[in-house]
Write a protein that binds this DNA or RNA. Structure first.
Length: 196
DNA sequence: TGCCAGGCCCTCTTTAGGGCCTT
C-alpha cells in the first residue's frame, strides 16, 4: 500500500494514562511548519498518578490545572472539530505524524473521534498515521534509546519541555526535518485509519 | 483475592521472557 499525502502534520496528545482502551485526551497539539494547533479539555475520567506526575495536569472541581495554573479548556467535541478545521486548512490528504503513533496516539485519537461520530469526516481529511518511533528505530539502528527526548538530544543536540504536547510536536517536526527520511521510507511506517 | 497496558522487537528464541515506547 502506498499512501499519497500532500501535507505532514506533527501532533501529540497528553492523556490521563497509558491504557489506550481507557485513557482520555487532556491536550492535543499539532504543528505544520510555523502554524500550530493547541487545545485542552477536561477529561471525564480520573488521571492516573503517573500521568499527573509526568504532565503536571490535575482536575479539581471540574477544572483543569497544569502545575497549579488553571487552563482554558473546551469540550472534547469542539476540540476535535477545531482540530479537523486546522487540518482542513492544508492541502489534502494530510498525514499525521506522532512518536509511537501506531500504539498510542492513533488509537486514542481514533477512539475520541468515534465517540462523536467524527471518524468519517476525519478520514476525508487524513490519509493515515506516521509512526516516527518505528521509523527511526528501523532506519537508525544501534542507538541506546529511541524515546523522543533522547532522539532530539542525539540528533539535534538539545533538550526541550517534554510532556507539553505542543513542545513535543514542535520537537518531533524538528527531528524529522533533520533526519529527512525519503518518501519510500516514510511510507513503510504509515498506518491507515482503518487499522484502529 | 489479585489483578493492574500492550504490541513490538531482540535474543542466551520459536515449548519465552524481558525491555522499550507512549501518559
Amino acid at each position: 500500500m502506498y499512501y499519497e499525502y500532500q501535507t505532514k502534520v506533527f501532533f501529540d496528545l497528553e492523556t490521563t494514562g497509558l491504557d489506550t482502551k481507557s485513557c482520555d485526551v487532556i491536550q492535543l497539539s499539532a504543528v505544520c511548519g510555523a502554524r500550530q494547533f493547541n487545545a485542552y479539555t477536561v477529561p471525564p475520567g480520573i488521571l492516573t498518578q503517573s500521568a499527573t506526575d509526568v504532565t503536571g495536569f490535575v482536575v479539581s472541581n471540574g477544572r483543569l490545572f497544569c502545575r497549579g495554573v488553571p487552563m482554558k479548556t473546551i469540550h472534547l467535541h469542539d476540540l476535535l472539530v477545531t482540530f479537523m478545521d486546522f487540518l482542513r486548512s492544508f492541502p489534502r490528504p494530510v498525514l499525521l505524524a506522532a512518536h509511537n503513533a501506531r500504539l498510542f496516539d492513533a488509537p486514542v485519537l481514533t477512539k475520541a473521534l468515534k465517540k462523536f461520530n467524527l471518524l468519517t469526516e476525519f478520514k476525508s481529511v487524513v490519509c493515515g498515521f506516521l509512526d516516527t518511533f518505528l521509523l527511526v528505530k528501523n532506519v537508525h539502528r544501534g542507538l541506546a534509546s529511541y524515546s523522543q527526548p533522547n532522539l532530539v538530544k542525539h540528533f539535534l543536540g538539545k533538550s526541550y519541555k517534554e510532556h507539553d504536547a505542543l513542545e513535543d510536536a514542535r520537537a518531533l517536526q524538528d527531528l524529522l526535518t533533520r533526519l529527512n527520511p525519503t518518501p519510500p521510507v516514510i511510507n513503510r511506517f504509515i498506518y491507515g485509519i482503518f487499522c484502529f
